[in-house]
Write a protein that binds this DNA or RNA. Sequence first.
DNA 1: TTGGGCTTGCAACTCAGTTGCATACACATT
DNA 2: AATGTGTATGCAACTGAGTTGCAAGCCCAA
Lengths: 145, 145
Amino acid sequence: MCERCNYAEMLEGHGVDPTPLRQAVLRSIGEESRPLAAVEIIAAVRDQMSINKVTLYRILDLLVDRGLVKRLSAGDRAFRYGMGETRHHPEHPHFVCSQCGVMECLEPDLLPAGIRKFQIKGKRIIKHVDVRFEGICESCLKARM
Amino acid sequence: MCERCNYAEMLEGHGVDPTPLRQAVLRSIGEESRPLAAVEIIAAVRDQMSINKVTLYRILDLLVDRGLVKRLSAGDRAFRYGMGETRHHPEHPHFVCSQCGVMECLEPDLLPAGIRKFQIKGKRIIKHVDVRFEGICESCLKARM
DNA sequence: TTGGGCTTGCAACTCAGTTGCATACACATT
DNA sequence: AATGTGTATGCAACTGAGTTGCAAGCCCAA
């Protein structure tokens, strides 16, 4: 997402030892404009260094736990991992192509106004809201013609 | 959801042969106020008759395909299955408890006004929008005290 | 009664992620 | 240098949810 991010600094700022693998995982996620599945992250990291899938999942757990990364559900059985919220990356809804399964980020203003102002509703506590649009992505549309 | 539903009729109305297992699956889903995971449906059906899990998944695929049932993602790795939209069951958002994982249906008016009026945005076609609230459910809240 | 099509069952498989345990490396203490 | 403690990583095996391949049972038509 942002070329100028210093991933080592981000990790340290969240109390995480910036090992090469953790930097590579966070960079792979941060340099993409869309949330990635674990299999895509592992492929991206392996372009540069070797990593075991268990290590990847443990790094992802850690980053999600620290809020650096967000675990997103795409409506299929594999989670997607995208950058957590910061000044440069405000909350936004996502789009999932029901044909090819790709997940894309949408503009934050597509989040219906006021949707963040949910309160205790009845006797539940509501903490987050997740808005996911589904349809056909641009490249699948092109491929149909 | 509704005691007065005639599940055999609903199946026939959607061009599906109303076998005992299909009726039992649809009834299990229809009589609950919240969407169920496959493991809960299989348990409910097995209170009355024997069913194999492959058969259950095939029936669920069929019912989802015919629009009688909606496949919902709860943010974990197991889908939930709830009744499809009808006059009695209008579209509504869902709530997922991040502690116990239960999924509940929320009031339709919690769907932000106008969220259904999404259009072709950029070069994508958007067909559906899925709104999922997350937090702590009533019974988990009680258990904390 | 033969054949085709639908429904169900069983075993084995897939896929994404997890667990248990071992190894490796870093840094501190003796 | 030797030892210990903690964290990071790897490998093999496992889990849970769902899928595939194939066979058996059943019904109705020709």
